[in-house]
Computed example of a mutant assay.
Amino acid sequence: MLFRYKKAYEKISMGLLSFMPNEKDVKKLLETIHEYESNPDWHLFVWKKMEDVVGIIGVRMVETDAVIQHISVNPSHRGEGIGKNMILALSNVLQTTNIRSTEEIKAFFVKCHKEKEEN
C-alpha cells in the first residue's frame, strides 16, 4: 500500500533511493530527500508490505502532470509487481491521470504500462 513519506522513513528511503543510478553519493541522497521534504511540488511515497517499507516512488508535479523521478524496490521484493502497483496507485493519491516519467526511468515506466494494458 502507498503511503506519503514521513521523516521516520528517512533511512530506508535513502537506502532505496541509492539504487537509482544518479543517487549513489550520500551527499546527493541527502539533497534529494531534503528537496522532497521542503519543495511543495515534490512528493515522495513509500510502499509498505505488512510493516516493511519495500518500495519508494518520487514525483515532481508540473502543473497537473505528475513526473515520476525516482522509483525503487527492495531487491528481495523485485518481480512481485510492486513498481507497477506504485505507479497505478499514484493517480488515486495525486488525483491526476497525467502521469509520465523522466528519461532515467522511462523504460521501466513503459514496461509497467504495457503490462497494465495486457491485464
Rank of each mutant, 00 (worst) to 15 (best):
N98R: 14
L94A: 08
Y36G: 03
H70T: 09
I105C: 02
I68F: 04
G55S: 05
H34E: 15
L29V: 11
I105E: 02
H113Y: 14
L88V: 13
R4P: 14
M61C: 08
E35S: 11
V54M: 01
N119M: 11
P21A: 08
I33K: 13
K84P: 01
V73T: 14
K28Y: 00
C112V: 09
K49I: 03
E51F: 05
S38T: 15
K7V: 06
A66S: 12
D41V: 08
K49F: 08
W42T: 12
K49N: 10
E10T: 15
L44W: 01
G81V: 12
I87F: 03
S76M: 10
I105L: 04
N22L: 10
G83M: 01
R60L: 15
V59E: 07
Y5P: 02
N85G: 02
R4L: 12
G83W: 00
I12T: 14
E115Q: 14
M14T: 00
V110M: 04
V46K: 01
N98F: 13
F108H: 12
V54Q: 02
G58N: 05
Y9G: 01
N98I: 05
K24S: 09
I68S: 11
G58V: 09
E118I: 06
K114C: 01
F109C: 02
V93G: 00
K116E: 12
M50G: 07
V53E: 02
N22D: 15
E80P: 01
Y9D: 15
K48V: 07
F109A: 02
I56W: 04
I12R: 12
I57P: 01
V73A: 03
I68M: 12
S13G: 14
W47V: 06
H70Y: 11
E37C: 02
L90K: 05
S72P: 08
V93K: 14
I87Q: 07
N92D: 15
E117W: 08
L94M: 10
N119I: 10
L16G: 08
V93Q: 12
K11C: 00
T102D: 06
A66P: 08
W47T: 04
V53L: 08
M50W: 02
K84R: 15
I71G: 03
V59D: 06
K11I: 06
K7R: 14
H34D: 13
A8N: 12
K7T: 11
E104M: 13
G83A: 02
I57K: 07
V54P: 00
N85P: 01
K27M: 04
V73F: 03
V53F: 07
D52S: 10
Y36D: 01
N74P: 00
K49A: 03
T96Y: 00
N98T: 06
A107P: 06
L44N: 07
Q95V: 11
P75R: 11
D52C: 02
P75H: 13
F45E: 04
G81L: 11
E103V: 13
K28F: 00
K116S: 00
A89W: 04
E23W: 00
G15C: 07
H43C: 09
E117C: 08
T64I: 13
S13T: 15
M14P: 07
S18W: 05
V62A: 10
D25G: 02
Y9H: 15
I56K: 10
D52V: 09
K7P: 01
D65E: 14
E115Y: 03
N39T: 13
L29P: 12
F3C: 06
V67K: 09
T102H: 06
K11Y: 09
N22S: 13
L88R: 11
E31T: 09
I99L: 15
